[in-house]
Design a protein around this nucleic acid. Structure first.
Lengths: 338, 338
DNA sequence: CTCCTTTACTTAAACGTTTAAGTAAGTTAT
DNA sequence: ATAACTTACTTAAACGTTTAAGTAAAGGAG
């Protein structure tokens, strides 16, 4: 594995008969060199295949061209966020280092430090807990929250308008005549869960329907794809064993939805004839599912883009942007009457 | 956005009454300090919350703790690979910067340089073309190929045994009595396509069945999820319009499969009654699909892990590991008789 | 008690940038 | 004609590590 040594500023400077400072200035478009010199330097750069040693640059500037992304898992939702982040990073000439907190707060905090040690320009964080240690925020890279918020610190946050999205979905089921609507939520400890529940509750309240806590089931206390799917499955099973089971079910994330649908199928219930259903997140396979699923769709890609934008604003103008992007209720067959 | 300055080796050294060299040695477990000093230094480190400036370290060592991952898109297959890579990187204390080549060779080559400029320890690359510029390999970070191989250079490669996997799948369809089997492939320019076709051809040849080129359709000349799905869709449409259409279809990647299934559905054909089907890649939603899909399953997570392992071996022992991991044919309902 | 080794350090240079400060020549203002 | 400014550079220090080379003290061998 003999790797050729990369040329440095010195090599360029020597060849172009200027000092390294001049080369550096040309590289950074500092406009302090003559047209001629700029041309000559650029030619040498191309000729000997020079490119910057970013470690050296980061050391001097105290900041690298990397930004960190910390997600709790690599499910398709976060992958789509990553996609948006990557696209927007293109513009700012940033690159993304991705880390997986596995829904563990301890790991999350370690990762923040690891990334800061890399001198990242900033961190996009989908936090796993309801609060965030303030020293973490003061002493490390600038942080923008994505998807989920925390209570104790004021940070930029790009999220979905979960309350409104779930309000709309629940309203739709109510409009279709349902009074007993089962709600399947992920783990209680994150803001999305709280807000999704709130949307549901507000919708029921708006029709003066009493909340039945037995119809609200948590299915996401576990981590991992299989466990989450199982959580959705078990949640439905519990509901259907109630003396008065729900006539409609709303599953508030993708994996919970898959588990829920599995349980419904096993119970030999037909959607939407026997039970109505609304799920979460739109993915390609839903084009071929039957019945076609009514779902709440999140603008994940756009969230990724805006998070990077918010990070840039935070860094350059100290502006704390927070955005709550609208969720779209995509009405298809599974919720009954369209 | 006033970010507190991170403490340096000097700060630790001063507090612990030693030189920075000693602190560095303690940090790197160089075992040249007394028990007492080690303890004292570690205490100070914890107390003032010191962690290394990785840019400085990378500059001095000529190598960072980052590894680059270049994928052509962020589809679930590559996400699972990323998962495996992240897990294995944990062990080597590496972090992953992900880049998306968007199936463009030009972009891929730019990314290799960008990552090398970051002094990455190595690059895991899913190449977009059949060859790779040799200067790229000589002058940049060590590269391990994943999923796809290239012809002109000898690099470690961790791939799936596509020939065997597709041979088995085709054989299964033949065993179930099919003679006219439609094959849907991605773009012609990558090794996986070539090998998947080869497996199919070998299976047919083993039964002395003549290859009908009209039954081999490329659906993946386009980039992007929608385009790929459409490619699968169009491929089926073309096949079904043949004078003598296939009685079975084998779609050799996930998105092509979804498009193919969509077309089959639209043609009002029932699987497996009217047409048999085998697809590619197992994902959670398939638990609730009907009919249950017979698919060729790739060990993506394991490929990611092994790629990192191969990279490490390449770096430490100059060993060029290549592995061709077995594909599993998971037989369910869609291919007819089980 | 000398010499040699080992232990436990310290000193100082180097990695490849960026940038503040300096300079020399040319241009403009008065 | 001289001062003041501008242009186009150069010099040198600094960022925070790692590491080769040096050193001083302690321990052991002869």
């Amino acid at each position: 594995m003999v790797q050729k040594k990369r040329p440095t500023l010195y090599d360029v400077a020597k060849q172009a008969n200027v000092s390294i400072a001049t080369v550096s200035n040309v590289l950074n478009n500092k406009d302090e060199a003559s047209e001629e010199t700029i041309k000559r330097v650029n030619e040498v750069i191309k000729q000997i295949g020079y490119s910057r040693n970013e470690s050296a640059r980061s050391l001097k500037r105290g900041e690298s061209k990397l930004i960190g992304l910390i997600v709790p898992d690599n499910n398709p939702f976060f992958t789509e966020i990553l996609d948006g982040i990557q696209q927007e990073c293109e513009y700012y000439d940033w690159q993304v280092v991705v880390a997986n907190s596995e829904e563990s707060e301890k790991r999350q905090n370690q990762l923040i430090e690891l990334l800061s040690a890399q001198q990242v320009s900033g961190i996009i964080l989908a936090p796993v807990s309801e609060t965030l240690s303030t020293t973490k925020i003061k002493e490390n890279a600038p942080i923008v929250l994505i998807d989920r918020e925390v209570e104790n610190v004021k940070l930029p946050v790009i999220k979905a308008d979960n309350i409104d999205g779930c309000y709309k979905a629940t309203k739709k089921l109510l409009k279709n005549g349902h009074k007993r609507i089962g709600l399947i939520l992920a783990s209680p400890g994150i803001s999305t869960t709280v807000q999704r529940k709130q949307g549901y509750v507000e919708a029921l309240s708006s029709q003066n329907i009493q909340i039945d806590e037995e119809l609200i089931q948590f299915g996401g206390n576990y981590t991992g794809t299989k466990a989450q799917i199982n959580g959705g499955y078990q949640a439905v099973m519990r509901m259907m064993n109630l003396p008065s089971p729900p006539t409609a079910i709303f599953a508030t994330n993708h994996l919970l939805m898959i588990g829920a649908l599995k349980a419904i199928k096993e119970q030999n219930l037909s959607i939407p004839k026997d039970i109505s259903f609304i799920g979460f997140d739109d993915h390609p396979w839903q084009e071929i599912s039957s019945p076609k699923l009514t779902i709440v769709s999140q603008p994940a890609f756009e969230m990724g883009r805006q998070a990077i934008h918010a990070l840039h604003k935070l860094k350059t103008k100290d502006e704390v942007i927070t955005a709550s992007l609208p969720l779209k209720l995509i009405i298809r067959e599974s919720c009954g009457t369209v």
